[in-house]
């Protein structure tokens, strides 16, 4: 994977952007009807899944984000549109220079009864990176979103810990001007936070899976709790007033990916009754 030499630094930071629109046709097949991109952000490919969902693979052509870069995505889903967004590869955020923060923002509007799956691959923060990610989703009536986010703090494969730097994450789901899910966190790295039980406890990988807007009853929730890829004490799962959430803090991206993919497959198959093949780019 990543080598330890510093990445080449462009003279000016990238300001990539993507604007997407999705609409469902009369046969309930969703199409990507509008795509405007500014490098290095682009759509690698978009194609229909067997259930009519539009699957879009996002690509960051520069390979990683340097200090001061900004990536911005906006998207709209028309009524009843169904879209699954993922990324072609793990995201990388390099060490910050001059304390400049890297920003990644996404704002997605879902019209009534639309459904979004926001399932990017993991993001790797190099030690001393400063990264602010923000995801805001507005749900129309009857709309729902299933999203996950997995972050690796430090290139642990190289023995690197995340001892300096900053990771700020804002994930919010709103409906009719009301917040349904507010998940804001800020991790200012330090040796104490890295080691401490109330911090990372020496575990580099943090993941969250949230499903909001669908509503899940106790029976459905018990089905999710019973899945065999549950990572024991590294994972937690709870019901929320408007959905459910899974949290992971551990040391294996394979472990969290297997768990989240299994939860996603279970929701798709047992609760939405539209099973889908696991996208090949997630294969483990």
């Amino acid at each position: 994977m990543a080598d330890l030499s510093p990445p080449p630094l462009p003279n000016t930071p990238w300001q990539g952007s993507l604007d997407l629109k999705f609409a469902a046709d009369r046969t309930r097949v969703t199409k990507l009807t509008h795509c405007e991109s500014v490098a290095p952000y682009k759509v690698q490919r978009a194609f229909p899944c067997t259930d009519g969902t539009s699957q879009v693979v996002l690509l960051h052509t520069a390979g990683g984000m340097v200090s001061g870069d900004r990536l911005n995505l906006t998207a709209q889903l028309a009524p009843k549109a169904q879209a699954l967004l993922t990324t072609a590869a793990a995201g990388k955020v390099y060490r910050a220079t001059e304390d400049k923060t890297t920003f990644q923002t996404a704002t997605i509007h879902l019209a009534e009864n639309a459904r979004l799956e926001w399932l990017p691959q993991e993001t790797i923060l190099f030690d001393q990176a400063r990264f602010h990610q923000s995801l805001r989703i507005n749900l129309g009536a009857g709309a729902q979103v299933l999203l996950w986010d997995v972050v690796r703090l430090g290139r642990t494969a190289h023995g690197e810990s995340f001892l300096e730097g900053m990771w700020r994450s804002h994930t919010e789901v709103w409906q009719d001007g009301r917040p349904l899910w507010i998940d804001r966190s800020c991790l200012r790295a330090s040796p104490e936070l890295w080691e401490g039980a109330e911090g990372l406890g020496g575990r580099a990988i943090v993941g969250t899976l949230v499903w909001i807007g669908g509503g899940i009853d106790q029976e459905g929730f018990e089905g999710l709790r019973g899945l065999d890829q549950w990572p024991g004490s590294c994972g937690g799962m709870t019901r929320l007033p408007y959905g459910m959430v899974c949290r992971y803090r551990g040391s294996s991206s394979t472990e969290v990916r297997r768990w989240f993919v299994q939860v996603w497959r279970h929701i798709r198959g047992e609760l939405w009754h539209c099973p889908l093949e696991t996208p090949r780019i997630w294969m483990m």
Partner: peptide, 14 residues
């Protein structure tokens, strides 16, 4: 108050 509900980490804490 709604903000707090949307921010609570688990069913038990809520």
């Amino acid at each position: 108050n709604q903000w707090l509900t949307a921010s609570r980490e688990s069913a038990e804490l809520l």
